[in-house]
């Protein structure tokens, strides 16, 4: 049988050819470009050694984008778990309106993030819906997206709300997989509500935590669309993530070499975070 299956290996060749052309080759070529001062269109360029990489560590905009990337990644992951798990627990029991609530919370996941960003813009602009409420409450209207701190909070918030549905459905599925006998056993032992949650629900939800955190984290670290729609990286360069910075250094500032180096940095960052996360998860698994 094994010999027969070997014949079937031909079936993955088209897929591998596509990966070779669109992933592996660009990856290697990207390393080459990162060592040049190429502007993205000219025929002339020269190899500049590590200059682009040195600049990564010195450039203020890169540093700001780096911290923002971590903020968007870890920040939305944290809030998405809190919201997603609370919603899943809330919707775990049957009640009228449960199905609709699940439908509505998950709906934004399917809407294009860039359009979601623009829809929020009607709330956040100066003459927008949020300021109408502020004015009604007697407060002063504000430019919500004109200070870095406030703009970043809204980017984080919009991303969290849009994708908390993912964690919610993962946790709902996880909760349904917990056999009722575990709860019954815990109650017979005299465990209170909180203890049941802490000692039964949380440990048995472990696989759901792993998947939900991984998906949300990778999504958050790659954040692009919502930033483009809400702030375009501004004011100044203050709300950029590495993703939006790569885009603007290539297409707006014509620094292809620098953008390629930046791309490598993003790749290494995401790889390092995902691998350490997996290591941490494995350690927890061994301990428990």
């Amino acid at each position: 049988m094994e010999a027969l299956y070997k014949k079937a290996n031909i079936l993955y060749i088209p897929a591998l050819a596509l990966f070779a052309l669109f992933v592996a080759y660009p990856f290697v070529d990207g390393i080459r470009i990162a060592f040049t001062n190429w502007n993205g269109f000219s025929r002339r360029f020269s190899y500049v050694g590590l200059r682009n990489f040195v600049r990564l560590f010195k450039d203020e905009n890169v540093r700001a984008s780096f911290w923002n990337t971590l903020l968007y990644g870890f920040g939305s992951t944290f809030f998405q778990q809190v919201l997603g798990l609370s919603l899943a627990l809330f919707l775990d029991k049957k009640f009228p309106g449960r199905g609709i609530t699940r439908t509505v919370v998950y709906l934004p996941v399917l809407i294009s993030a860039v359009i979601m960003g623009y829809m929020w813009y009607y709330l956040l602009q100066y003459d927008g819906a949020l300021n109408d409420i502020v004015a009604l409450a007697g407060g002063e209207k504000r430019l919500w997206l004109s200070s870095a701190a406030s703009a970043k909070s809204f980017i984080l918030g919009v991303n969290t709300l849009q994708y908390c549905g993912i964690s919610m459905v993962i946790y709902m599925a996880g909760l349904q997989n917990i056999a009722p006998m575990y709860y019954e056993a815990a109650r017979i032992e005299g465990a209170g509500e909180w203890q049941v949650f802490r000692r039964v629900t949380v440990p048995l939800l472990y696989p759901a935590f792993v998947t939900s955190i991984t998906i949300n984290l990778i999504g958050g670290l790659k954040l692009f669309d919502i930033i483009k729609a809400l702030t375009g990286g501004g004011p100044g360069y203050t709300t950029n993530s590495l993703a939006t910075l790569i885009h603007s250094s290539y297409f707006a500032s014509q620094m292809a070499g620098f953008a390629a180096a930046n791309g490598l940095a993003l790749f290494v960052l995401i790889l390092a975070i995902t691998l350490s996360l997996q290591a941490i998860f494995r350690k927890i698994e061994v301990q428990s």
Partner: peptide
């Protein structure tokens, strides 16, 4: 795990 963005330029 490769974010497509990191390959934007090449």
């Amino acid at each position: 795990m490769v974010p497509a963005l990191s390959l934007l330029v090449p």
